[in-house]
Each structure stands twice: as structure tokens, then as C-alpha cells.
Amino acid sequence: MGVPRRPVEPPTAEQAAFLERAIAEYGKATYNFAYRLTQNESDARDLTQDAFIRVYRAWRSFQPGTSFLSWIYRIVTNLYRDELRRRKGRFHEEIPEDNAPQEFGGQRPLAVTPIEDYVEGQLSEPLSQALQMLSPEQRQVVMLADIEEYSYQEISEIMGCSIGTVRSRLHRARALLRRLIQRQQQQQQR
């Protein structure tokens, strides 16, 4: 921060207009996506800002007719992944995916259906906590598939992995989510 920064060439009118429009149309969705990933406002703000700076720099590489949202979600995903590596995951207590099949795989329906209760009533806090306990990749695949309603193919392009990986991550993440919600309900009942 102490080093004076040299301004780069000012944006052209076209470049500025592109960025303005991108922020106006997709800023909120990008920020919410970043917030759900990071689970905190400060990191979500930084992530959103960095993503739009990437958009600003690479605006000519955007192909009209393709999905801008998919593009910026991919940018956010990559930035988040880089940030996690830089921080060495110390902000997240990841649950190894390998644990999921042994612990939860093949489990039949729960005896109770706490999810419906959360939908009707105290939804946010337990689900938010459960989401925080997923690994970043699991949380992201759930968000993209269930909240953003992307196809497995689109998710694989955003996350940079195979469709098979998307499928298995989603299956495990949902099984884990259900298990975590059940656990929280049991704790509340005690």
C-alpha cells in the first residue's frame, strides 16, 4: 500500500460502458454468488470486486451470445479457489469427500423430514450452518445446481471439472446436507 501506484491508461468509453452494464445487470447476482461461497460479506465484496476487475481487463474476450453470468461465475470460482490455496483453507473446516460414502452413502430416507420444517419455519440458520460445513466444492456445486439451476454440463464448465465429478460431488453434498440437518435437529431436541 505504501508504494504510489501509477494509473493505467483510462478506460475507453466502450470499455467503461461494458463494465457499467455488467455491474448493473450482474453485480447483485455475482455478489450473492460470492457471498454464498465465502459466507461472509467482506470476502464477498473483495471477490466481487476482483471478478469485475478481471472482466474489465478481459472484456474483449467475452463472446456476445454466451452467458455472461456463467463467465463471471467461473471467474469468481477461480479467484475463490486461488484465495483458498493462498489462505491454505484456514477459513474453512473441510469435510473430506472421501468420508461421505462410508458414512452416508446408500442411506435410505430419514425417519423424519426436518427439511420441510425448515422451509416452513426456522430455515436460514440451520441450513446456513449446514452449508458452512460442506467443503467449498460441495457448497459450490449445490449452489449452482439447486439455487442457480445450472445443468451438470454448465457446472462442469464453471468449475472446470468433469460432469462425473459434478454428479458425484452433488450426490455427496446433498447426502451430507441432509445428515447435517438431521443432526442439528436432534441437537435442538435435546
Binding site: R36, L123, V142, M143, D146
Partner: peptide, 14 residues
Amino acid sequence: ALRAYAHAEERDLP
């Protein structure tokens, strides 16, 4: 539940 959570938690861009 996930969609309802996302909707309830939706924020404006600061």
C-alpha cells in the same frame, strides 16, 4: 429449502 434460503439471504450489491 435451498432456494428459499437463497432467496431469504439475497443481498443487494453494496
